[in-house]
Design a protein around this nucleic acid. Structure first.
Lengths: 251, 251
DNA sequence: TCCCGCACTATTGTATACATAACGTATCCA
DNA sequence: TGGATACGTTATGTATACAATAGTGCGGGA
């Protein structure tokens, strides 16, 4: 009864989509469980039409799976699915970096990237890194990746990267927060920032293969972050969509 | 009035989606043109609800673009978009081939691939290749690519490849038919078949990098096919979704 | 003559009523 | 006692009515 702020000036479809996405990611529905439209109507407070629209969009987003006989169920992910999604994102971001390098970018194009780089540098100078700084890092990191993707100047590729990053555990900083309390975290962030610097350098020097390779390796840091967080069992509540993952302990 | 065969046992949504897709790809709507729901209702003969569902799905498919103020318009593609979409598919198929190679496949897994290979060999023995054979090639080629994609055993990757191949000009054999009458066509098909053979060999020997590289190069044959067809101006009517492409003559 | 504003029209967003198909349950028969 | 069938319930698929908003055209004023 407190979130009625967004009632105005936002479509019912979007409202339903947000509410259902939160419900799924927070573990309110079990993987494999059928998601009833009527039940969703009660949960979201909107009528069936926008609920159905939201369900279709969430299916395209990858959170739901269509049931052959009709309707949708919550999708289940294996550990392998997560690792593959991360590798997939890395491959696509690598392609974007290669495009940027091969096609060339102007100094003006790189400006916002370098500002981002400098801002992250500022954050990493703090020892140890505060939780607030971690939160800022997530935002800056997301911005950096978005800017880098756009450097490719390829709408089809940008579109595909957005889709690949839509799954919360595949997004660039999906597992950063989960290990914010660990000492190893700072090291990984420093390495990640080095990758950022290298890819910019490679793009400036039009080294396509190098830019591509470093972005692929960069994505694999997410796997290390994930393993670290799972091994230390700290802040597992910060792991995105943990409830969607079958037997998440064995990664 | 003749296509009423499918009326039974197929949902109105699918019917609308097929009808609208055909309409778009055949050039019935101009790129950038707003696609009115009411107009679509008249065209497809179903009511607004399934039409809206179909429009959302076609947007996700990449054929439509959402208008900020509401509704959808037909998407326009540049030549660069097409080339990028092909490179994108090649990159993803390359990743699938690498996964297959690195993770290993059984002889039984490769059986259908090798049957496909043999069937294509049979086709290519004919000189010159008949139009019917071209048509068979398209089907076999699509099957080969689908089987290869599944060898990755990675649902997230398979899903992404399917989406990347949904655009007609990005699909594996999108431009094969368009140059069926050209003598160079047979050479390209022979080269393509060699790629097929190499990728299977690489996967069998667990050579991930080789498998990936050859699939990337393999996709670039589509670019050659496209250029060939455009330069010779033969069978331009077989070019998929030509009407969606802005200034297609300058590729 | 050009620009601003108002009103109208057309289009999309939303809600709901209806039809149809699927699933579960209970009962009956073997 | 087990299985199959029929019936009832509940789900989704579809159609349509209503509401709200954006786009458009006309008219008046500067």
């Amino acid at each position: 009864m407190a979130e009625r702020e967004v009632d105005r000036s936002v479509s019912q479809t979007v409202k339903a989509q947000l509410a259902l996405r939160d419900l799924i990611l927070s573990g309110g529905l079990r993987p494999g469980e059928r998601i009833s439209e009527l039940q969703a109507v009660e949960t979201t407070g909107v009528s069936r039409t926008p609920v159905r629209m939201a369900l279709v969009r969430l299916e395209e987003e990858g959170l739901l799976e269509a049931i052959p006989s009709g309707g949708f169920m919550v999708k289940a992910f294996s550990e392998r699915d997560i690792l593959d999604s991360i590798e997939l994102r890395g491959t696509l971001e690598g392609l974007a970096a290669r495009f940027a390098a091969e096609r060339g970018v102007t100094a003006r194009d790189l400006e916002p990237l370098k500002e981002c780089l400098a801002a992250i540098d500022d954050l990493l100078r703090q020892v140890p890194i505060s939780v607030d700084a971690f939160s800022s890092y997530v935002a800056l990191n997301a911005r950096f990746h978005a800017l880098l993707t756009e450097l490719s100047r390829s709408p089809p590729l940008i579109r595909q990267i957005d889709r690949a990053s839509a799954l919360p555990f595949a997004s660039p900083s999906g597992f950063v927060m989960a290990q914010s309390a660990l000492p190893e975290a700072q090291q990984i962030l420093i390495i990640a920032q080095d990758h950022h610097r290298i890819v910019i350098d490679a793009i400036e020097n039009r080294e396509g293969a190098r830019a591509e390779a470093v972005m692929r390796e960069h994505a694999r840091l997410a796997v290390r972050n994930l393993r670290l967080a799972l091994r230390n069992r700290t802040h597992l509540d910060l792991l995105p969509a943990l409830s969607l993952i079958t037997s998440a302990t064995t990664i």
